[in-house]
Each structure stands twice: as structure tokens, then as C-alpha cells.
């Protein structure tokens, strides 16, 4: 059993309270530029969704890091950045398929979600419960519809 952030985009209103809470937990100030969760606004579709690290089991950021600064944290199930080892090369940011390894505005090091050590601030503060922190066996049931949609678009575009 492990815990993960379950994001429900339909509930998101785009208010950015999650970014404020995240930046507070990391810096002790309100600084969205330092937030490790970001709200994306899809203007044309009138849709909003926060996105953050999915804590991939096969984590490319961890694999690619030349200084082994990203480690697997057994206690929380997260991939965590050891700042004393990070040299700020951002190979991890380039490699991440989801664009969720960010840059610290204060020192240029890489920064990513660590689930606040097991009590994510973003989830606690969301006024519409669009970010749930739940125990999971696997995330398949959330991602399956998304995967189906991608497969369908791929089929439409490439005919297979």
C-alpha cells in the first residue's frame, strides 16, 4: 500500500491555492515560482488542471541524474532530490515526460514534489477537493480512461 495524489481536473477552478500552499511549505513565503505543483490553464477549452510529479516507478529523472542526487525514499514512496548532491544541470527536467521537475528560483537547483514527506499541503488546501491524497494499490483506474483517450487520438492521427 502506498499513497498518491489523485488529481480530478473537472473539479479544478484554477485558483492556485495549491501553488501558494506548496510554495509556503518549501520556502515559508508565498512564491508560486517556487511551487512544485503548477496549475495549467487550457484557455480555449475553459479547463484547468494542476500537475505535479507522478512519482514514477520507473523514474527517468532518477536514472539520468549524473550525481545520483535523486533517490527513492522508502518511507513515502517518493523520488526525492538530495540538494547537497544536485549540481543544477537539469538533465532530470529535460528527461521528465511530464515536465514536473522544476527550477528553484533561489539557487537554480532542480526541485520536485516530495509529497511534503507524507502530508501534502496542496491537497489539504484545495477548496474544491480537486487534489485528493489517497491510499492506492495502483493508479490504473485513474489513468486508464486517459490512456484510452491518448490511444484513440493516436489511432485517429496515424490510423493504427
Amino acid at each position: 500500500m502506498t499513497a498518491a495524489l489523485k488529481i480530478v481536473p473537472d473539479r479544478c477552478t484554477g485558483c492556485m491555492q495549491c501553488e501558494l500552499a506548496c510554495s509556503w511549505s518549501k520556502t515559508g513565503t508565498f512564491q508560486p515560482a517556487a511551487s512544485l505543483i503548477r496549475v495549467h490553464i487550457f484557455d480555449e477549452e475553459a479547463a484547468y488542471a494542476p500537475y505535479t510529479c507522478l512519482q514514477c516507478e520507473e523514474a527517468w529523472c532518477m536514472t539520468v541524474c549524473p550525481t545520483h542526487a535523486i533517490v527513492h525514499d522508502e518511507a513515502t514512496g517518493t523520488k526525492r532530490i538530495v540538494s547537497s548532491l544536485c549540481i543544477g544541470c537539469h538533465l532530470c527536467s529535460l528527461t521528465c515526460p511530464f515536465g514536473t521537475v522544476f527550477t528553484r528560483p533561489d539557487n537554480g537547483q532542480a526541485a520536485k514534489c516530495d509529497l511534503c514527506g507524507g502530508q501534502p499541503a496542496c491537497s489539504a488546501v484545495c477548496p474544491t477537493d480537486a487534489i485528493e491524497f489517497v491510499d492506492v494499490e495502483e493508479t490504473g483506474e485513474w489513468f486508464a480512461p486517459w490512456g484510452d483517450k491518448v490511444a484513440q487520438r493516436h489511432a485517429e492521427a496515424f490510423g493504427s
Partner: peptide, 17 residues
């Protein structure tokens, strides 16, 4: 109505898309 839209830090989201 398509969706409610919030301003920054808003917990009401009265905006109407």
C-alpha cells in the same frame, strides 16, 4: 455554463465560462 472560473486564491469561483 461550461465551467466556473476562479481568480487567484479564490475559494468561491463565481466566474462563468
Amino acid at each position: 455554463l461550461v465551467a466556473n472560473k476562479a481568480c487567484f486564491a479564490c475559494t468561491i469561483a463565481c466566474g462563468r465560462v
